[in-house]
Design a protein around this nucleic acid. Structure first.
Lengths: 348, 348
DNA sequence: GGTCTTTTCGAAAACGTTTTCGATAAAAAT
DNA sequence: ATTTTTATCGAAAACGTTTTCGAAAAGACC
């Protein structure tokens, strides 16, 4: 019933624990004969090294922690998948925690992970995280920390992000290229950096194309479970306020889909009357009607890159090499679908 | 730089490690004065118990493993959320692995988790898992195992499931109650039990209502990333084969949404000409047009129940109590939306 | 003052592994 | 035959904690 240990094997073979341990790890100073003997017995006894003891000795757990704001979300679950897939290749396990967009929870969870002595932490910040002490604590403990998507620019650690500003710029440019003259923007809440960057990209694209920026065309919608309703509501309001709008760049797909639903109900033609571009390339956007033009946010790749960088830093620390922080910016791409017209000119 | 240990505290206070340990855990045989002293110093030194050492001594890791076929899926990510939320309350961490619907991977991952010495395992089986040795291994190691959703009926352990058969029966009955006379069924692949049960429920509802079961009306679609296309294709085929069909009960929402898209394209009126019921209540089904009547599969609750049962069994084993396996069947509910007509009669 | 109880503490073993370093035996070299 | 090298092994410490059990000190009681 008790799990078999090195000592069990040693006893049966009348050799020392040391030799058993070495045999299993193919040390050069143990004869092929005993190696074979040990390995065979280990197999038949179904020996499994006690990870607690190993961790205690080696001071590493081969485990990393992941904190994300929400799990039930296409983008984030894609990231999880990316991280896990990469971690598995390197023999690492992943402990996942959900901060629920709460700063307080996030703090507690960071603490939990440190107590658990994970080898590193990957995190996407909660929306209401404004203080970064808990993150700097991780760094000062010399534990590798990677931030992705929702990051704190001021914290000195590696980051995996997309160029939200450029992506938003490109999305808006696409609307302009397809003939839109008066373009609205549904943005997210004021806090997260993404929201700000996307807004700035939108604004810059307008200005660069000689279209005056009109703050009245910018609507704020909270991104949460009610995003869909929010999108509907704002779409209707926009139509009442400004009947000359012919394009909208929307902060996130779900809101965009809400807007599409509203326009469909009202008989507003998409893209003929109003063109729409979303953000995220949530799976749903390829399935609704009309299918949604949107910015593809490569969640899976972000997860992979985040783990790769984490792994690199773990290795660097282990070998006492200088740790190099990197800012990895992944490419987004505009997925052109039915909710926008075809471009008139071919602009790069 | 080195993490502070009990011995560090002991040294500074000129007391023994034993006393420090006891003080921190509020043993009765240490004076209030030294307790206060120890606790204060522990706080200022930011002492964190080394979990490896604790685990090694106590032989438990306060960690559980979770294996699911896919992460990027509304139902499964809801389950994850349910498990994590409950685990956090009890001070457990969750290691998540994705089997990718592969039996081989599943085996390896079970092994990984056992080696990691998690306190218990929660699993939803891969579609191509037909042999259950790896699961019985877990049980014979006396490690708590809970299966949910995709289960193996023959394995002796607790299970958290829904009554797929009843749910399918109710869904089909709803179609009948709303006036459908000739009802097709898009089912999943032949292997997983859910697929079979849903099919049986569909069949029984027909027979119970005096509607002859016609095997030609049953289409098989693989449930994967291409489900949407699969749904479209089968919908078109169905229309060609049988122009008298007025209702479809579909194994899973995504396929149903594909079918809706196809019918929308073809100008087939939903629900007037054909009514559709899906399965899962994936978030999308409330967002497409027409909104989809579907069976709500309570993922979050399943996750919660699965962890609760696991926790119970961990406790039982720890206290040397007899372990009781339970089969927890959660209620599903039919969410009536626009893709079906209103019921003619009120049947219970 | 002596016995007895209560309070407070610490030595030591144990958990299972990894790794260093020295010991022994066999083989090779002189 | 003696020394040197090589191959093979094991003792022991260390990782940081928990817990048992006994010891010492302090207080209570006669």
């Amino acid at each position: 019933m008790k799990p078999v240990t090195l000592s069990d094997i040693a006893e049966r073979l009348n050799i020392s624990i040391t030799t058993v341990s070495k045999a299993l790890k193919d040390y050069p100073d143990v004869s092929p004969k005993t190696k074979a003997l040990v390995k065979e017995l280990a197999l038949t006894l179904n020996y499994r090294p006690n990870s607690f003891a190993v961790n205690l000795r080696t001071k590493e757990s081969k485990t990393i922690g992941l904190i994300i704001p929400v799990i039930v979300h296409h983008f984030f679950s894609s990231v999880i998948k990316g991280i896990i897939s990469q971690a598995e290749k390197k023999g690492y396990l992943v402990i996942i925690l959900q901060s629920n967009e709460s700063y307080e929870l996030e703090k507690k969870q960071i603490d939990l992970l440190i107590n658990q002595r994970v080898d590193g932490i990957i995190i996407s910040l909660a929306n209401d995280t404004v203080d970064f002490k808990h993150l700097n604590d991780v760094i000062s403990l010399d534990k590798p920390l990677i931030m992705f998507d929702k990051i704190a620019k001021l914290v000195k650690c590696s980051k995996v992000i997309i160029n939200d500003r450029q992506a938003a710029y490109d999305a808006t440019q696409h609307l302009i290229n397809t003939g839109c003259k008066r373009i609205a923007h549904f943005r997210g809440s004021l806090l997260p950096q993404n929201s700000i960057d996307r807004f700035l990209g939108y604004k810059k694209a307008l200005v660069d194309n000689g279209i005056p920026y009109d703050p009245n065309l910018v609507y704020i919608c909270e991104c949460d479970d009610k995003s869909f309703e929010e999108g509907k509501k704002n779409a209707i309001k926009l139509l009442e306020d400004h009947d000359d709008v012919d394009g909208i760049f929307i902060n996130t797909d779900l809101v965009a889909i809400g807007a599409i639903a509203a326009f469909n109900d009202l008989g507003v033609k998409i893209p003929e009357t109003i063109s729409i571009v979303g953000f995220s390339n949530w799976f749903m956007s390829s399935v609704i009607s009309p299918t949604l033009t949107t910015v593809d946010q490569p969640g899976f790749e972000m997860g992979k890159e985040a783990f790769k960088q984490l792994f690199k830093e773990i290795r660097q620390r282990k070998n006492n090499l200088p740790v190099t922080y990197e800012e990895i910016v992944l490419k987004t791409s505009l997925v052109k679908r039915e909710s926008t017209k075809t471009e008139l000119t071919n602009r790069v």
